[in-house]
Write a protein that binds this DNA or RNA. Structure first.
Lengths: 342, 342
DNA sequence: AACCATTTTGCAAGCGTTTGCAAAAAGATA
DNA sequence: TATCTTTTTGCAAACGCTTGCAAAATGGTT
């Protein structure tokens, strides 16, 4: 034993003894099952309170009950993006007496697969997987065992998957259209991490907006990023070093836009006077950057909330598998864009 | 059963059969125990890999083994403060094959107690409790069962507690001294949440710096806050409405400083020309506020890292209870402070 | 070969809970 | 009172794993 048991470790057997019933009757009371007389139920409830009984989660789960634990798989918990999504998740879980078992994968595929398999072994009642890296490695297995899961900000392997995403294509289209309507014709694009469908869709939206406005797509104006600040910084440097640099930049998330801002400041470029900038996400820092960032708002809190609600509904009624949802994005006008200089 | 078992649910019995040994031998291999022949050990290891065996955590924990789960108790996971601490925690856990079970209490004492008791029932191997609200409600119980825990950014009930905190008194002292040395004599103070020892110590440091410089403490210049942005905003309004308003404000954290900044902007006050401002924490937004905030850096990542390492060492060797640590704070000069206007 | 010490292995019990099913109890009806 | 139906209760098995201890195997010494 890693630690010593004490007299405060009250089990279902103790409650049964105290109430003068069998432990299976206590179980029926704890789990709100029927076939318990009201008087018996009351007697057991009081014994539980008197003794301060807390169900042992591992035993309950092993014995086939609900653990009331949701597995949450993320790359990294320390970003504002993730903080916002978690806010929504936490709100819903708290009102349903569920807890979170958190796994951080640091973007590694093997970790992702291993964790999913481990959690689906009964430890968790369901899974929330944020920005899944390689869903094809485990979706079939989850489905084969009818294990509830919801993917967040990424689609799965086919139309039967359950996911909550944002309208990334439309958001990329709107960001680019906004710049075009201001008069920009050379619009740089710093992509997100291209493993992610969100990054790919935002790029497609960018391309579609250019095409729809009769502006040819210049491959030189597209640099590959990875959603991290430094790739925004470096992407902005690459774009400014072009023979014909852009008059505006659309970064695939606010964090990379922040990096681009830093580069612009170092090159003594004023935003938006010398160069316009649009981000994506509308994480909390977007509003406090200098200048406050014009960005595409992705409803992250709502995504977390909705995904969690869908998952809990699915757990509650296993016959009702939820349908995927795509939430709208919204252009948030702040102060980082203006007419091109010349 | 909440979900159906499938052929992919490999148990220790399957591995034993595949390797031609008993399941207790498999257990010895899985847990790196001695008294297994090298050839047997190799045979079992290959069978495990062949079958893709994953230990069932709940069974292992219930049977008295290590769950390799750390319970993490926080008020709210969506703040940058918490994101930074978690970064440190995650770094250490990842290299030790431990996972996090996350409980968010939203500052409620009853939730805190209930979670601690639940997790100490064997589900977690140890506990990290960030900004504990009411440690006296459960510390005795944890100690009685020699259950490993580390408090973060709060001391416990006596000198035998295990905690990692920052030098809040010194930080408050340094922040106030910095303003005094710039020439400020009326220095407003927006406190943190006074349930927290960090808030109390920062206030004591403020008072001590004033006294040591022969400046009387004016109670009107101290307004009570709660570490949330809105209390910084309101606190700043209260201070500016005084008959003799301050020429500088020291907010007990950066988030409240951000709120004060907003209020100053609404009152058309320039920072630092019209009024100086110091925060505390140096969370990531401090550097990108306008102007970039002068603040006391609390080494949050290091706190998370150290606390986690201490906890894992304690779990690994139960006879070696770690000693508490106080990490130094550091004044970070940015652009929110200057000489008083007159 | 006999004896002793050490290593290896497997049996059996147990962890705390859920649940299928049989037995007991209760209530209704003829 | 006998019979039938429904409700209530408890027994027993099971979940997947760890571990104490006895038995078996191995190796070394006389």
């Amino acid at each position: 034993m890693a630690h010593k048991k004490t007299l405060t470790d009250i089990t279902i057997i103790d409650v049964a003894r105290e109430a003068g019933v069998s432990y299976s009757t206590v179980s029926r009371v704890v789990n709100n099952k029927s076939y318990v007389k009201p008087e018996t139920r009351e007697r057991v409830t009081q014994a539980m309170h008197r003794l301060g009984y807390q169900a042992n989660l591992q035993a309950r789960s092993l014995a086939g009950g609900h653990s009331h634990v949701i597995g949450l798989l993320v790359h990294n918990m320390s970003t504002q993006y993730m903080g916002e999504i978690f806010r929504g998740i936490d709100d819903v879980l708290a009102t349903h007496n569920y807890e979170v078992m958190l796994y951080t994968t640091h973007r590694r595929r093997t970790k992702e697969s291993a964790y999913v398999n481990m959690m689906a072994r009964g430890l968790a009642d369901g899974l929330l997987i944020v920005l899944p890296r390689q869903p094809e490695a485990y979706i079939e297995s989850l489905r084969a065992r009818d294990f509830p899961y919801v993917l967040i900000d990424q689609v799965g392997i086919d139309e039967h998957d359950v996911s909550v995403t944002a309208a990334n294509f439309q958001g990329g289209y709107d960001a680019t259209t906004h710049l075009i309507e201001l008069g920009h014709r050379r619009i740089g694009k710093i992509t997100g991490w291209m493993d992610m469908v969100s990054a790919r869709d935002r790029l497609e939206g960018y391309k579609a907006a250019l095409s729809d406005h009769g502006i040819p797509v210049d491959p030189e104006l597209i640099v590959i990023g990875d959603f991290e600040k430094i790739s925004g910084y470096q992407g902005a440097a690459t774009l400014l070093d072009l023979a014909a640099p852009p008059t505006a930049v659309f970064a695939s998330n606010d964090v990379m836009a922040q990096g681009a801002l830093e580069l612009f400041r170092e090159r003594s470029l004023q935003v938006p006077q010398d160069i316009s900038l649009v981000g994506f996400d509308d994480i909390p820092i977007a509003a406090i950057l200098n200048p406050p960032l014009t960005t595409l708002r992705q409803p992250m809190v709502e995504m977390g909330r909705l995904a969690t609600q869908m998952l809990l509904d699915w757990i509650s009624d296993p016959e009702q598998k939820p349908a995927s949802v795509i939430l709208p994005t919204e252009l948030i006008h702040r102060e980082s864009t203006s007419l091109p200089q010349s």
